[in-house]
Nucleic acid binder design. Sequence first.
DNA 1: TCAAAAGTGTTAATGATACACCCATGT
DNA 2: ACATGGGTGTATCATTAACACTTTTGA
Lengths: 242, 242
Amino acid sequence: MEVTTQNIASKENINTWISQIHTEFKLAMSVDCVIFGYTEADLYVALIPCNMPPYEGDLSLVGDLLHANEDLDQAVDRILWERIGLRNVYCEQVQVFSQLGRHPLGRVVTVAYYSLIKVEDYKKVAPADCPLVWKKVDEVGSLAFDHNEVFGLCLEKLRRQLREHPVGFSLLPKKFTLNQLQQLYEVILNMSFDKRNFRRKLKAMDAIRDVGEVERDVRHRPAKLYSFDLERFEASGKNSFV
Amino acid sequence: MEVTTQNIASKENINTWISQIHTEFKLAMSVDCVIFGYTEADLYVALIPCNMPPYEGDLSLVGDLLHANEDLDQAVDRILWERIGLRNVYCEQVQVFSQLGRHPLGRVVTVAYYSLIKVEDYKKVAPADCPLVWKKVDEVGSLAFDHNEVFGLCLEKLRRQLREHPVGFSLLPKKFTLNQLQQLYEVILNMSFDKRNFRRKLKAMDAIRDVGEVERDVRHRPAKLYSFDLERFEASGKNSFV
DNA sequence: TCAAAAGTGTTAATGATACACCCATGT
DNA sequence: ACATGGGTGTATCATTAACACTTTTGA
């Protein structure tokens, strides 16, 4: 930290604020969603062809401008509804990108969010004319704008959150087997876990509850079903999943 | 996650974007800085009296509008220079607050940052007419706008970062004693550590280097001086301080 | 010689990792 | 009966937490 002589701002008053807010500013905000799509085999990200010079032909994240009558969280919900056809999707704000010149058409400050959906849920409601492209997260090529940076940060944050918070359960049925849960962690984190250690740790977390049922119609020993128990997890004060 | 029928957005094209960016939007962005001031005894936060109805008389965080020719990081640097008289201050972006109606004068979306300075550095350059008020972080009362929420999140993030990243060294002289370092962790995290365990852990991190000197002019056994060694720390791949 | 803070090791408890076999079901 | 995935326990190692005395300097 450098210490130098002072340079005090001229004091603003209400009138300068009002005039600045209403006249000086012509700035747009957008939201860019890193929509992660989960399957039991892989983690994907939703991309769309970009039609804006100079990025025509590249893929970009799914985004839109913030409207005047909504806050950012509402904008994310709207975008997911309009583009993906899903509501009540798990979302997290990640970071703001405000670099001058990041958008070719003018001053657009964007806020990155990630969200988590099941690809199968999307498939049920996917529009025929929808240009969405799903790429495996480790096969994302060069994206439009600064979207590679945005994507990278969101993937990092997703993985950090998954390790420390009960984030993944929105991707499983209400009742799930422990193997489904482990598979989810393995796919998203791109690593593998020892089955016994994974189970021991998970049970010690007080986050899941045996619902007393088992799988049906499998041609092997049926697995017990569990459900996520948010109350018990929060009461236990434990943290950090794996 | 709820799956329902689709509601596809009408496709936008470049022209709609351009017109939206340039006409629909009249939105201001601001930066609110949670400026943490460190002394060897306490952690403070810098506040200023608010002169904006309906919050006249309350204290608020130090903030300003984002100017047209700067990005957010630059705005933070400018604010710290104008208000505090310091440059090259450690800063981290924390979160965006975009709730409708959060600002009484219009649509202002704010981005929260925290920054770390030494109170003594500020005192050297503090302007006589400057209305800055330093409050201990656990004695912050009710603040203007949504600034209590902003402050709380920034304090949380500071503490998380301090535990996991080499953040605190900007608050110490280039050469410091291990007790100074421990005191810093204790003050910011508001907890105490065992001296031997703290040292063992810190040395195991490969983050500090004995510079072969000792304190002068103390009326007790002089402590060895250490310096932070960023290169060695990054090379070691270790993480998580305490 | 006294006051004041610096410095240093060991033990116990806890948590993490590695590892292999039997079980229940459908076909 | 066999193929398939489900389910379980123990031993080792690494990490963390608790704890008290001697050392060096200035006054």
